[in-house]
């Protein structure tokens, strides 16, 4: 097995373009399990751990997204999201806090969760609920493409990345209303969701965001429920008065 260790993002993109079958490894909390269980024997591993910008986040204003947006580097571990972004991204912070154990939360990342695209990934319901204007930055030597979160998950453990693409970051609007996340597992920690639910109110747009995990081949929204609740809140004039 080849082990590629690019030092910069450009080198990483070049390596991925040259070896499209190389398996990116970030926190390794999924990849190493697959390797150790002999479920996967990739020809090459592409180690992203030397690329420091992947572990950074910034806030700013981006085209196509309303208000302040967090651009979350693909490799920012859950522990830091919970510590540093609980105010801006409360749903994701809650979700991140349910992932595995402290050790896993110190290594595991949203980029890795998206890369794996497991229907049981806990970041997904929170990202779906955070709004239709959440985008995955998919980068390649050909340039950067923004994939709307609704178009990202395409099948069981399949996403819409091209073979030469890597996830650079996720752009998530800062919460403009309350967000929640909860999951049901058969133990009080370190457990795969039997079902997970992300929920957000978006008063600015008068919309409701939901995300359901572990209940279908891909993470998905409860579209009817979103619309129902948004209408209900509008009908009762609760968006405007904020309850």
């Amino acid at each position: 097995m080849e082990f590629l260790r690019p030092a910069t993002w450009d080198e990483a993109l070049a390596a991925k373009a040259e070896n499209p079958s190389a398996l990116p490894i970030s926190g390794g909390t999924d990849v190493m399990v697959e390797l150790n269980f002999d479920r996967h024997r990739p020809a090459a591993l592409l180690d992203l751990n030397r690329i420091s910008e992947l572990t950074e986040w910034e806030s700013g204003v981006y085209e196509g997204q309303e208000g302040e947006v967090i651009r979350l580097g693909a490799a920012v571990p859950y522990a830091r999201i919970t510590r540093e972004l609980a105010r801006q991204l409360p749903g994701l912070a809650l979700a991140g806090n349910t992932v595995g154990s402290p050790q896993i939360r110190n290594r595991g990342s949203v980029g890795g969760n998206l890369g794996g695209a497991s229907p049981a990934g806990d970041a997904h319901p929170a990202l779906l609920a955070a709004g239709r204007d959440v985008f995955v930055e998919a980068a390649s030597v050909r340039g950067t493409r923004l994939i709307a979160i609704d178009d990202f998950y395409v099948g069981v453990k399949r996403n819409s990345l091209e073979p030469d693409e890597l996830i650079r970051a996720v752009r998530i609007p800062v919460a403009d209303g309350p967000q929640q996340f909860s999951k049901i597992g058969t133990r009080n920690a370190m457990v795969i969701a039997v079902c997970a639910f992300g929920f957000a109110l978006h008063p600015r747009s008068g919309t409701v965001g939901t995300g359901i995990g572990s209940a279908a081949p891909t993470p998905r929204r409860a579209v009817a429920a979103e619309e129902f609740l948004a209408d209900e809140l509008a009908e009762r004039n609760l968006w405007a008065t904020a309850g």
């Binding site: 049981a120 795969i192 039997v194 572990s214 209940a215 279908a216 081949p217 998905r220 409860a222």
Partner: peptide, 11 residues
Amino acid sequence: ARTAAGPPPHH
């Protein structure tokens, strides 16, 4: 949402 295909494989 529940009528979708069966449980994810690694449940």
